[in-house]
Amino acid sequence: MAVDESPPRPRVRVVLADAAARRVAADHGSADLAEQTPVGEALVKGLVRAQLALALRLALVVAAGLGTLPLLFAVAPAVGEVKVFGMHLPWVLLGLLSFPFLVLVGAAYVRWAERNEQDFAALIRRPEK
């Protein structure tokens, strides 16, 4: 919580209203956001750009991992003949491995997207840093 600005004082019992009042005082960032100041606009643009870059990067991973397979099978038919555990490679890749691959990419996205949002929230709450 943002308590840096308050002068040193003896230990006090924290009351809800008290904490809320102090938070409002420290929240320049929220005010910037709500009032659509240039600073607020720039902050939101930064967040949108970060999230979009993350989504596009992971979409590219899927496009490279799955999207190139039809082309690969067409250009190098020999790949289709390779056997893994008694099954032909295209069956293993598409029927089996593609699903955990998609879930892994999704899990990575959720993790990083939440981190982007936490960074953004931290920036808004403590704009001076």
Binding site: A55, L58, A59, V62, L66, P70, G80, H88, P90, W91, L94, G95, S98, F99, L102, V105, G106, Y109, V110, A113
Partner: peptide, 24 residues
């Protein structure tokens, strides 16, 4: 056979596209 495995893969991958670009 193997050529139509893109149907189930695509039906599942649709949710990844939804997650990346739309959900939140």
């Amino acid at each position: 056979g193997v050529d139509v495995l893109w149907y189930p893969v695509g039906f599942a991958a649709g949710y990844l596209a939804l997650l990346l670009f739309v959900a939140a």
